[in-house]
Design a protein around this nucleic acid. Sequence first.
DNA 1: ATATAATGTGACCGTAAGGTCATTTTGGAG
DNA 2: CTCCAAAATGACCTTACGGTCACATTATAT
Lengths: 208, 208
Amino acid sequence: MPTETFSRLPPKKQERVMRAAVSEFIQNGFERAKVEDIAARAQVAKGSMYQYFHDKREIFLYCAQWGLDLIMRKLDQRAPTDDMDVFAYFHETVSKVQVMREEHELALFMQVMTREPGLLDETMRGMYEVADGYVRKLIRNGIARGAVRKGLDEELLKEYFLGVTDRFERRWMAKYIDFSAADPTAWSAAMQRELDQMLDLLKNGMGC
Amino acid sequence: MPTETFSRLPPKKQERVMRAAVSEFIQNGFERAKVEDIAARAQVAKGSMYQYFHDKREIFLYCAQWGLDLIMRKLDQRAPTDDMDVFAYFHETVSKVQVMREEHELALFMQVMTREPGLLDETMRGMYEVADGYVRKLIRNGIARGAVRKGLDEELLKEYFLGVTDRFERRWMAKYIDFSAADPTAWSAAMQRELDQMLDLLKNGMGC
DNA sequence: ATATAATGTGACCGTAAGGTCATTTTGGAG
DNA sequence: CTCCAAAATGACCTTACGGTCACATTATAT
């Protein structure tokens, strides 16, 4: 989506520009973000930004693509999640949150993306569909292996699972973001403990 | 927050103005929304809008206050939720979604509010705190009455409960919004059926 | 009926920011 | 060293929209 010129730029400079854009969008959202300020952050002239991208919208869109790609790569190399147990998959939240911690700004940018449905709703819809499909598969496996209850609607099980796990993920993402200075190993231990309790709830429910 | 002039306006006109603003903000978000277009929708001159409100920001803020108030009133008169059972409270989702269906636009506006944290994060934080506190109370009651498992962290139970119930609520809100023309009684029956299954999951979990 | 206050109005102003472009700088090939 | 293409730059243009205000209209009181 960016221009040829941008693609020929030294990768380090590309990254500097993208990170500048991401920061600016995090701080101000799409509308209030100024192309000139992105340029300033990247130590580049405003005019250059328009040699790299067609318009502001394209900068934002490419931030999403670039950021998502980078995060996905990091996530994949850390934990190959294919053909896993549903509950083991929930354990992977620890990895996810840690990657998000390393890529603090990108994690924040993903929240900003959420707030701009008009700009990238096909993209987001696509992401959700992929994630949903994946979880469905895990659940089907779980039922087949006898780890998950039979007789309940697959769709509902997926909603239940994602309701719990998404909330948990968001909760810890927020904690990590607020206290990003704190000791990471202590945090991940604390998270691990909570995760075990939550897994218990997920498996056995809150009823008596 | 609006001016004296606005407060002296005939209530019907006040409502016309507010609904116009809400619609415009839904369609365009805060930044892209034009005061002139709000005025046009309300069949009022642009200048008048500035006799009613100090600035655009204030229009948005008052939309939030006015809308929340209206929804809360409708919700309260439908289902007084004090000192309830946790699981009975989840059943109230049906009422909630129905009220949101009646106030379709206000429901959508609440989603827009979510996307403008810079404008009203104290307001939102306040709302979340109230909701959290309420659910905590319900859970404590549940434990005391023996309906909820003992020995688990109250905070975690709250997160678990809200993870499941929020997701369920959003899911049905979205369905109602997409198919707002469809037969409401059939829908609420379908929702009721799903809700019962979800309640089963909430109580007993998805494990085998 | 008249005076006075309250409300309504839309042309107008100022400004900020997206986008352009003529010019300069840089870098590499011969 | 020279030359040319690619890249960088920032002054400038344009537009759009938030906000103002002088004037018109309507309502109220006496």
